[in-house]
Deep mutational scan, measured.
Amino acid sequence: TFELKGKVGKVVKIAEDHYLVEVEGDKWIAYSDEKLSLGDRVMVVDVDGLKLKVKRIP
Rank of each mutant, 00 (worst) to 15 (best):
A30K: 00
V12L: 07
K5Y: 15
V44Y: 02
G25V: 11
S32R: 15
K35W: 08
R56E: 14
K27W: 10
K53A: 04
S37G: 08
L4G: 03
I14W: 08
Y19F: 08
Y19D: 05
V23Q: 01
I14P: 14
D46W: 03
L20C: 06
A30V: 03
W28M: 03
G49F: 10
E34I: 05
V21Q: 00
D40K: 04
K53C: 06
G9V: 03
G25A: 07
A30I: 01
S32K: 14
Y31Q: 14
D33P: 09
K51Q: 10
L4I: 10
K5G: 04
D46S: 03
Y31T: 13
R56H: 11
R41V: 06
G9A: 04
D48L: 09
I14Y: 05
L20S: 06
L4Y: 01
I57T: 14
W28D: 01
R41Q: 14
S32C: 05
F2W: 03
I29G: 06
L36P: 05
K7E: 05
I57A: 08
V42N: 01
L20D: 07
D40L: 06
K7V: 03
L52E: 00
D48T: 08
W28P: 02
M43V: 15
G9P: 00
K51W: 06
L38Q: 08
E22W: 09
D48R: 04
H18L: 08
E22G: 05
W28T: 02
R56F: 14
V45M: 14
R41F: 09
Y19E: 05
V23D: 01
K53T: 12
V42D: 00
G39T: 07
S32A: 10
D46Q: 03
D33V: 04
Y31I: 09
V47N: 02
L52D: 00
L4K: 03
K55N: 14
D33T: 09
D33C: 09
K51V: 09
Y31C: 09
D26N: 10
I57Y: 10
S32Q: 14
K51E: 07
E34K: 07
W28Y: 14
K35S: 12
D26W: 14
L20I: 07
K7Y: 04
L20W: 14
L4T: 05
L4N: 02
K7L: 04
M43W: 03
V44E: 00
D33W: 07
K5S: 07
A15S: 10
V54Q: 00
K13F: 10
K35Q: 13
L50W: 13
E3R: 01
T1V: 15
Y19C: 07
V11W: 01
D48K: 04
Y19P: 05
L38W: 06
E34D: 13
K13E: 09
I29T: 10
K10C: 13
V54M: 03
V44W: 01
L52Y: 02
K7R: 03
V21S: 03
I57P: 09
S37V: 10
I14D: 04
H18Y: 14
Y19T: 13
L20T: 09
G49R: 04
G25L: 09
D48H: 10
V54Y: 00
G9Y: 01
D48F: 09
D33L: 05
I14R: 09
D40N: 05
L50F: 13
T1R: 10
K27I: 08
K27N: 05
L36T: 04
E16D: 07
I57R: 04
R41E: 14
D46Y: 03
E3L: 02
K10P: 14
D48V: 12
V8K: 05
L20F: 12
D40H: 05
D26Q: 12
K10M: 11
D33Y: 08
V12S: 06
L36C: 09
V54F: 01
L52T: 03
G6N: 02
E34R: 05
K13R: 08
E3V: 01
D17Y: 09
H18N: 10
Y19H: 10
V12M: 09
L38R: 04
V11S: 02
L36Y: 09
G49H: 08
Y31P: 03
K53V: 04
R41D: 14
V47T: 03
G9M: 02
H18P: 03
P58K: 04
K27L: 11
D33N: 13
P58C: 06
K5R: 03
L50E: 05
S37T: 12
V12F: 06
K27H: 13
K53I: 14
K7W: 02
I29H: 13
V45L: 04
D17H: 07
K55A: 14
E16S: 13
D40M: 08
K13M: 12
K7M: 05
P58M: 05
D33E: 11
E16Q: 13
R41G: 13
V47L: 06
D33S: 12
Y19L: 10
V42H: 01
K7S: 06
T1P: 15
A15C: 07
F2P: 15
E34N: 05
K5V: 15
K7G: 02
L36N: 03
L36E: 02
A15F: 10
K35R: 09
D17G: 09
G6A: 01
E34Q: 12
M43G: 04
F2M: 15
V12P: 00
D48W: 13
D40E: 10
G39F: 06
V23A: 03
G49T: 06
L50H: 09
E3S: 00
I57C: 14
V23E: 01
I14T: 13
G39K: 11
M43T: 12
V8D: 14
E24D: 04
K10S: 08
K55G: 13
D26P: 14
V23H: 01
R56V: 12
G25K: 06
V47D: 04
D48Y: 11
G9K: 00
K27Q: 14
I57H: 05
K53R: 10
T1S: 15
H18D: 08
D17I: 11
E34A: 06
S37W: 08
E16A: 11
R56G: 11
D40G: 05
L38D: 14
V21M: 08
K5N: 14
K35D: 12
V11Y: 01
I29Q: 13
D17W: 09
A15G: 13
E3Y: 03
S37N: 12
E16F: 12
L38H: 12
V47F: 14
I29K: 11
E3K: 01
K10W: 09
V47R: 02
V45C: 07
V45T: 07
L50D: 07
E3W: 05
Y19S: 12
V42E: 00
V42Q: 00
G6T: 01
S32I: 15
V23T: 01
R56W: 14
K51S: 09
E22L: 11
V11K: 00
I57Q: 13
V47C: 04
E24S: 03
E24I: 03
D46R: 02
K27A: 08
V44R: 00
G49N: 12
G25C: 07
L4H: 02
G25R: 05
L36S: 03
D46A: 04
V21K: 00
V21D: 00
D17T: 07
I29V: 10
A30S: 09
L50I: 09
W28Q: 02
R41C: 10
R56A: 09
G39P: 06
F2V: 15
K13I: 12
V8F: 06
T1W: 15
V23R: 01
Y31H: 06
K7F: 03
A15R: 06
V44A: 02
V23I: 12
L4V: 15
V42W: 01
G25E: 14
K10A: 15
D26C: 06
A30C: 05
G39C: 09
K5A: 14
D26S: 11
W28K: 02
P58F: 05
V12C: 06
G9R: 00
Y19G: 09
V11T: 11
L50P: 09
R56M: 12
K10G: 07
R56K: 13
V54R: 00
L20A: 06
G39I: 13
L52R: 00
V11H: 00
E34P: 07
V8A: 06
H18Q: 13
K35I: 11
A30P: 00
E3A: 01
P58H: 07
D26L: 11
K13C: 08
D26E: 07
G49W: 10
K55Y: 07
R41Y: 13
K5P: 08
G6Y: 01
D26M: 12
